[in-house]
Computed example of a mutant assay.
Amino acid sequence: MTGWSTHKGSALALAVDNIDTDQLIPARFMSVPRSEGYGRYLLHDMRRDDDEQLSAEFPLNRHEGVSILIAGHNFGSGSSREAAVYALVDAGIRAVIANSFGDIFATNAINNGLLPARVNAEKVTQLQQAVSDVPGELSIDLTENRLTLGEITATFELDEGWRLKLINGWDDIDLTQQHNHAISAHRDKRTKTTPWAWPTKPD
């Protein structure tokens, strides 16, 4: 994936608590090949009325080009379906801001270049109120773990390893390979000090 350190995009409030992965993408759509894109299934049932028509009351149906969601508490809870992240990414979402996230969802998000920005509840409420009706331009800086929306600024929590993965576009293997020099030096030292512990090569 492509790494990134800053993003400026259209942010919209989705002030609903406990949106789980089954709501993010219902299970019946997961048989669709990823190559066809999952974006059209994002929050499929929440966005539609009883007649399967897009509801004008749902925030994402009223605005296009949104790349940042300011969500409610416990976003991405539920089952461990990576397709929930695929749906967000394929719909153009680069970051979700919330007070808390499902653990597995957050890990899947990082592995797909999506930022799960954990911000304290008071700041989340401020941000939601600022873009409750009309999207606003929000800036994200991964180098400083900072968000800016107009005059509102907030810091977010992010594991250092996760931050490196997002900025560099790394996966878990890349994260380990940054230590290749130290790994090689340790291996060379161990082969000399404990040669009996290493497998012998066939003749």
Rank of each mutant, 00 (worst) to 15 (best):
M1R: 10
T2H: 13
S5G: 07
S10Q: 14
L12C: 04
L12Y: 01
A15G: 10
D17Y: 03
D17Q: 08
N18G: 00
T21F: 02
T21C: 06
Q23E: 14
R28D: 08
M30C: 12
M30L: 15
R34G: 03
G39R: 09
R40H: 06
R40G: 06
L42S: 04
L42P: 07
M46H: 01
M46W: 08
R47K: 13
D49T: 09
D49N: 15
D49R: 10
L54F: 10
S55F: 01
S55T: 10
F58C: 01
L60I: 03
L60P: 01
H63E: 11
E64I: 00
G65A: 01
V66Y: 00
S67F: 00
H73I: 07
H73C: 00
H73M: 06
F75G: 00
G76A: 03
S77D: 05
G78A: 01
E82I: 11
A84E: 03
V89P: 02
I93R: 05
R94F: 00
R94V: 11
A95T: 06
A98T: 09
G102I: 12
G102E: 13
P116Y: 07
R118G: 02
V119Q: 06
N120L: 10
Q126K: 12
L127N: 09
Q128H: 08
Q128P: 11
S132M: 09
D133L: 09
E137C: 02
S139I: 05
D141H: 10
D141Y: 03
T143W: 05
N145W: 04
T148G: 01
L149K: 03
G150I: 09
I152R: 11
T153I: 08
A154D: 14
T155A: 12
T155M: 08
F156Y: 09
G161D: 15
G161S: 14
K165F: 03
L166K: 11
N168G: 13
D171W: 09
D172E: 14
T176D: 13
T176N: 06
Q177T: 12
Q178L: 13
Q178H: 08
H181N: 10
H181P: 01
H181R: 14
A182R: 13
I183E: 07
S184H: 09
A185C: 07
R190G: 02
P195S: 10
A197I: 05
W198I: 12
P199Y: 04
K201W: 03
